Computed example of a mutant assay.
Amino acid sequence: MSQFATMRYPKVFLVFITLGLCSTVVYCQLSSTYYSTSCPNLLSTVQSAVKQAVTNEKRMGASLLRLHFHDCFVNGCDGSILLDDSSTLTGEKTAVPNANSARGFDVIDTIKTNVEAVCSGVVSCADILAIAARDSVVELGGPTWTVQLGRRDSTTASLSGANNNIPAPTSNLSTLISSFSAQGLSTKEMIALSGGHTIGQARCTNFRARIYNESNIDSTFATSLKSNCPSSSGDNNLSPLDLQTPTTFDNNYYKNLRSQKGLLHSDQQLFNGGSADSQVTTYSSYQNTFFTDFTSAMVKMGNISPLTGSNGQIRKNCRKPN
């Protein structure tokens, strides 16, 4: 037995130990074993549903990851993005970053139904989003991480928060840094989380200005995109964020940036002669480094301002408050 196990510490010292362990409050509120007794089959239930959804449509993995990101950046990871508009509530689905682009709500509904079947009224929609995001990355070949759990669901949403807090595809580097900093995320974490764009697609309306007007773009790449994104039509036409492996979670996103083949203006800002260049270079060369930093940043993002304890509720239907 360790000498520390039998040592008697003064009460005051024990208080400081506790405070030190809980210096980041949310890590004390959430736990990876939160449902181990109340819903022991939770993780396998979510994983099975995500696996089926991604098998049916590879793009869904990116969509579920994006839902978690867009949820956490608006009043914390509270499931607010899942709420439908009603006569008493204005949701976030019609916000500019989400309208005609946020998707996967039906998959979350299916997961919630499956989870309710094994443990009714126990697991929050916010936690389901966090687990589904992780499982989506894994299904597409990316790294895994331990999801912290114990979030509760909001009964309200914020349309203005969704419009103002989620970085736009037109953002420059300083705006991206500020947007993530406002959520307690560092520049390093911003660059790592941006690597989520190694999967998924974007609408023409979000990259048209880049391919027709910007100079820091590979000319052949720009030309190849114009047939699917005309200068004055085709707003909803899609192109992959990572032209090389759009349904595989890898580090090709960063390799593309070094070749001036970032699809969005905000993507290419990470490699444009600025302070982010060296980190992009590292990730383009060392995929494991990217994976390590990405998973760490995902855990931190998932811990943004969770509702815990008696705050919020466990929604029966993810689309509406109880």
Results as ranks from 00 to 15, higher is better:
Asn163Ile: 05
Asp109Glu: 09
Ser80Gly: 05
Asn165Ile: 06
Thr156Asp: 08
Val54Gln: 05
Asp84Ala: 07
Val147Thr: 13
Gln47Lys: 08
Thr45Gly: 01
Thr90Cys: 13
Val122Gly: 12
Asn164Pro: 12
Glu139Trp: 08
Leu129His: 01
Leu83Thr: 08
Ser36Gln: 14
Arg152Tyr: 05
Ser101Val: 14
Gly79Ile: 02
Ser38Tyr: 02
Gln47Leu: 09
Leu89Asn: 04
His68Val: 10
Thr37Ser: 14
Ser80Met: 03
Leu140Arg: 12
Val123Ile: 11
Lys93Gln: 09
Thr90Arg: 12
His68Cys: 12
Thr37Ala: 13
Ser120Trp: 06
Ile81Asn: 10
Gln47His: 10
Asp106Pro: 01
Thr55Val: 15
Gly150Met: 09
Thr155Phe: 02
Gly141Ala: 07
Lys93Met: 06
Asn114Met: 03
Glu57Asp: 15
Lys58Asn: 10
Val74Leu: 04
Ser80Lys: 02
Gly76Arg: 10
Ile108Ser: 01
Val96Ala: 13
Lys112Asp: 08
Pro167Phe: 01
Ala126Phe: 02
Ser87Gln: 14
Asp71Cys: 05
Asn163Trp: 05
Gly79Ser: 00
Gly141Val: 06
Thr155Met: 08
Thr88Ala: 13
Leu64Ala: 08
Asn165Trp: 08
Tyr35Ala: 12
Gly142Ile: 00
Ile108Phe: 02
Ser86Cys: 05
